[in-house]
Design a protein around this nucleic acid. Sequence first.
DNA 1: TGTTTTATGTGAAATGGTTCACAAATAAAA
DNA 2: TTTTATTTGTGAACCATTTCACATAAAACA
Lengths: 221, 221
Amino acid sequence: MVESSEEKKRISESTIHRLSIYYRALSLLEKEKHETISSKELAKREKLTPAQVRKDLSFFGSFGTRGLGYNVVELKQKIAGILGINRQWRVALIGLGNIGSALVSYKEFVRQGFNIMKLFDNDQRKIGSNHKGIIVSDIKNLESELKEANIEIVIIAVPATVAQYIVDNVVEAGVKAILNFAPINLRVPPDVYLRNENMSMELEYLSFAMVNNHTPKRVKI
Amino acid sequence: MVESSEEKKRISESTIHRLSIYYRALSLLEKEKHETISSKELAKREKLTPAQVRKDLSFFGSFGTRGLGYNVVELKQKIAGILGINRQWRVALIGLGNIGSALVSYKEFVRQGFNIMKLFDNDQRKIGSNHKGIIVSDIKNLESELKEANIEIVIIAVPATVAQYIVDNVVEAGVKAILNFAPINLRVPPDVYLRNENMSMELEYLSFAMVNNHTPKRVKI
DNA sequence: TGTTTTATGTGAAATGGTTCACAAATAAAA
DNA sequence: TTTTATTTGTGAACCATTTCACATAAAACA
């Protein structure tokens, strides 16, 4: 069964996140020269269940061989296709503070086809400077430069106080996907995808777990 | 009803993450001088449902007043207590690459009581240098210095290739909570809490959503 | 070639999480 | 005070996700 982008099957967020996990595991397996992998072995490696692995994949097709398992290279490519990372994405990053600066050099992004092509900041000392081969643009020119560079995804790494204002401009420029690192809940129109990255949240989870002797059934997906 | 740390109620991960969200929202409401907030209004602000807010809180007690809502300051303190962020945590950070360096200056951590007291790296050029008032230690002395400083939480920001080795040492030093930024699945004993922060995952979700015209019912908690 | 073993793919059952709906309690208004 | 309007707290209903269990198919072996 082949997935078409028209059919609005409800794939859960957890399934999509696990696909990311499978992809990463398969990349490693490829390096380790494994030719095939069973759902059992893949599950064991990532602390999941074999049924979960098979069920997740079954939403998108049947990629395995009974009695053998999955071909590592082939499954990796299939998942890349499902996740849309078998192509290059044009990304802009706004805000070159601590987090922003770190993300410019984050190799994992490039490895998955997320190419940061544009950098923006409002600080005169940063504007015009060169970060990893990219000249930092003035935030004043945000809208026109986002359009001009055909940016598809924007990463927000500005202070919470100005994040909503920036996002409004990004939306105005026609960008449909935003990854937000500012610790605030942003408003976007319904046709814009917004995801939040909250780095304190997992520390808070650890804190909660320790204080409450929490016993989770299994690790977070 | 009061929560005791002995009773092993199964609180879902989602509930805990939403408590983080409520806490953040309440901090903002406090600044904005709101005295009380209803579940309806809080839900609206964070794109959740009123029933969800009330149900989440009900697992830990009844903190509201019927006909009025919740007292902002009081509820914030209650949640801080539940999450264990009404105290200070002694944190160490290992790896001063891009991500590690950014995290040292991440104000959100300090604001929630997560104090980075120790920094470790294996690079001779970094060892002995001063980051935000902390002298970088040699990773060779990891175990003894973690113990000596009574570190409770360790943040791993080293390359994936060495992460497991480092974690084994951290566990050996008796640390029971680890936040991992390396893109790899780490093994820890069952009594050690491990959480993973995977910054590519949310970009992959955006990519998936765009390629598949995905229509999530609501935004990620 | 036939038999045994392994492992997938998937309905169905079980589990877990969210939303509903309403009694109870308090605030606000009359 | 009494009435009306709000809003909480929570079982029960509903919905989503995970796990089970097994038919099916291919591989491995005899």
